[in-house]
Amino acid sequence: MITTYTSYTMISRDLNKSLARVAEQPDVARETEYYLSKIGDIKSVDDFMADSRIYNYALKAHGLEDMAYAKAFIRKVLTEGVDAKNAFANQLSDSRYSSLVKSLNFSAYGEAATAFDAAQKGVVDKFQRQTLEEDAGSENMGVRLALYFERLAPTVKSGMEILADDALSQVVRTAFQMPDEIMAADIDRQAEFIEDVLDIKDLQDPAKVGKFLERFTAMWELENPTDTYDPVKLFSPSSSGISTDLLISINNLKLGGK
């Protein structure tokens, strides 16, 4: 039986080759060809929402496919952009929404938004990486978590950012076997504990991230010998930071039916 760490390193060691294999999958190649052939014609949020294949491709690329049904919600995210401090995406703790805006920044660039590399090759690269991680998770959720952590690690600046992401926090909690009393403590205490046991600066060093993930994968196998972990618990997009009433009102808008 191949260990979680071995499976992770087989993918990570030659990431370009792993991604190339994903790109060659018929369904991925088909949707990518469509996306690249059409995205330049998308000139507005309305255009984006109207083409379901473009819409679904971009959302999956950013790990937001589970929110595809919430069209009014996604419309509000894209319409308000990220430049204003009180923009909708900036009120959400899940950074995937602001990442979507930065890829398709209609608020800042209008009709030219899709002409930029971020909206074209950038989204394709994200889609292929997301697919790679999901495919790995279908075999071993620990591998998906390790690949996800490896990708996000250089962007992490604090223990609080780790706690704001269920998947990142699961990796850290597993690796360091966080005591029950810490996990039951308030969020600030949990963040302090993470920063005590994990030097955040080390996340900028690929070699140190690799050593950390070796530790994580070993502990993951001890805790999850049958690997039946539900990915919904870890990777579903979060809308925290917005009240439930506001979420309901947004998703009841007539725009949600578009």
Results as ranks from 00 to 15, higher is better:
R30N: 08
E150T: 11
Q190P: 02
D196G: 06
K17Q: 15
Y148I: 00
R144Q: 15
G159Y: 03
N90S: 05
P225Y: 00
K126L: 10
Q177A: 09
T244C: 07
E223A: 13
L253Q: 14
G257F: 13
D66P: 05
K208I: 07
K211E: 15
V28R: 02
S99E: 15
S98L: 11
E31S: 11
M178N: 02
H62R: 08
S93H: 12
Y5M: 09
T3R: 09
D165H: 04
D227A: 09
F235M: 04
M160A: 15
F212V: 03
F235E: 00
D186T: 01
V28Y: 00
N16D: 14
V209F: 05
K201E: 15
A108L: 15
A70D: 13
R96F: 08
T228S: 14
K38P: 00
P206Y: 08
R13Y: 13
L203C: 06
D41V: 09
A72R: 11
L19T: 03
D47V: 03
L132F: 08
P225L: 02
A191V: 09
A191K: 01
T114Y: 03
D196T: 11
V82R: 07
S158K: 06
M178I: 11
A23M: 03
T114Q: 03
S103E: 04
E150Y: 05
N90C: 08
T32M: 09
M10T: 12
N90D: 06
I162C: 02
L145C: 06
R173S: 07
A84G: 05
S93V: 13
E161T: 00
L132G: 00
Q130G: 06
F176T: 03
R21F: 07
V77D: 01
A218C: 12
D230L: 06
D46V: 07
S95T: 14
L198M: 07
Q25C: 09
F48R: 01
S7D: 10
L132W: 02
G63D: 06
F88R: 08
L36Y: 05
S158F: 01
M141D: 10
I54G: 03
G256E: 07
